[in-house]
């Protein structure tokens, strides 16, 4: 490797810092607005530093809106979706990766294409189905609807990951006396942990971000809303109440950003299916 000049190094840092600053500015702006007194938001020029942070805004939010409930619903939906998709996805991906199954190739192809289905199309028949099953208004409707996207996605990602694990590993486990399921649980899954983490992150992020399904299936009762439905409604109702809306957004963003920060290290590896190991 040739040594970079000081100028080159400076250029790289300057570009990196500029890029990050531009990318992260909206997030900073969200935090700043959430903490600003409402009157300040109508000042021109705007202030770029919270000289008088208003922490009470969060308490107000919890008091005036069923915000805690929305948060809880969102968590329930995201966790249920993640657990369901990961379970179904792990089993299917492992079977596709290890067993030469008749029809396996067709299924693999199907999984790939189903990632491209327009959700707004699916939402119509799903609505009809849930209506007849009495599931409209239940959090389960959102969990099931989201699985249409997340299960194929998880299966595809995990298969790529399982393909990088030598089959001798579970052969050894079988010889050592494990059942096939035991070999999967005791040997393959621990080895595939980074891939599982990356997939879980995807599932969680996609699910936490859902608006369409929640907006369509859960509108009837405010107590069933998820955060995204709540925030979108707040925006429609209180057009000028930006500090409240930003406070709500901040609280919706913090958990998922936390999950992201914790699992990001697996992201690049998971995407290239562990090929850079």
């Amino acid at each position: 490797m040739q040594k970079r000049s000081y100028l080159g190094t400076f250029g790289i840092y300057a570009t990196v810092i500029f890029t990050c600053a531009v990318l992260l500015f909206p997030i900073y702006w969200m935090i700043l607005t959430a903490l600003s007194p409402r009157t300040q938001l109508r000042e021109f020029p705007p202030r770029f530093w919270p000289d008088d942070p208003q922490w009470g805004v969060f308490a107000d939010l919890l008091a005036t809106q069923p915000f805690g409930l929305w948060m809880w619903n969102t968590i329930l939906v995201a966790v249920a979706t993640m657990v369901l998709s990961l379970t179904v996805g792990v089993l299917a991906a492992y079977a596709l990766s290890r067993h030469r199954l008749r029809g396996g190739q067709g299924l693999g192809l199907f999984i790939l294409t189903s990632k491209m289905l327009p959700a707004t199309l699916l939402v119509i028949p799903l609505f009809a189905i849930f209506k007849s099953l009495g599931l409209v208004g239940s959090l389960w409707s959102v969990v099931i609807a989201q699985s249409t996207l997340i299960v194929p996605f998880a299966t595809w990602m995990l298969k790529g990951y399982f393909d990088t694990i030598p089959p001798e590993l579970e052969h050894a486990a079988l010889v050592d006396g494990c059942s096939p399921l035991g070999a999967l649980v005791r040997v393959v899954l621990p080895v595939a942990a980074p891939g599982l983490a990356a997939t879980a992150l995807y599932a969680f992020v996609i699910s936490w971000s859902d608006f369409l399904y929640a907006r369509t299936f859960l509108t009837t009762s405010e107590s069933k809303w998820t955060l995204n439905v709540g925030i979108a409604t707040l925006k429609g109702e209180f057009v000028t109440d930006w500090n409240t809306i930003m406070a709500a957004s901040l609280m919706a963003a913090v958990p998922i950003i936390g999950v992201y920060l914790f699992l990001e290290r697996y992201l690049v590896g998971g995407l290239s299916s562990g090929s850079d190991k």
């Binding site: 030598p166 001798e168 590993l169 052969h171 050894a172 486990a173 079988l174 010889v175 050592d176 006396g177 494990c178 059942s179 040997v187 621990p190 080895v191 942990a193």
Partner: peptide
């Protein structure tokens, strides 16, 4: 395979990477 009372050594050894040597040997 577990019911044949055999043990196997693989070309790539197939050691369980997430276990210590002790657990690897004792797993069976």
């Amino acid at each position: 395979p577990g019911k044949r009372d055999i043990a196997m050594v693989f070309q790539n050894y197939a050691l369980y990477p997430h276990m210590s040597v002790r657990s690897n040997i004792g797993f069976g």
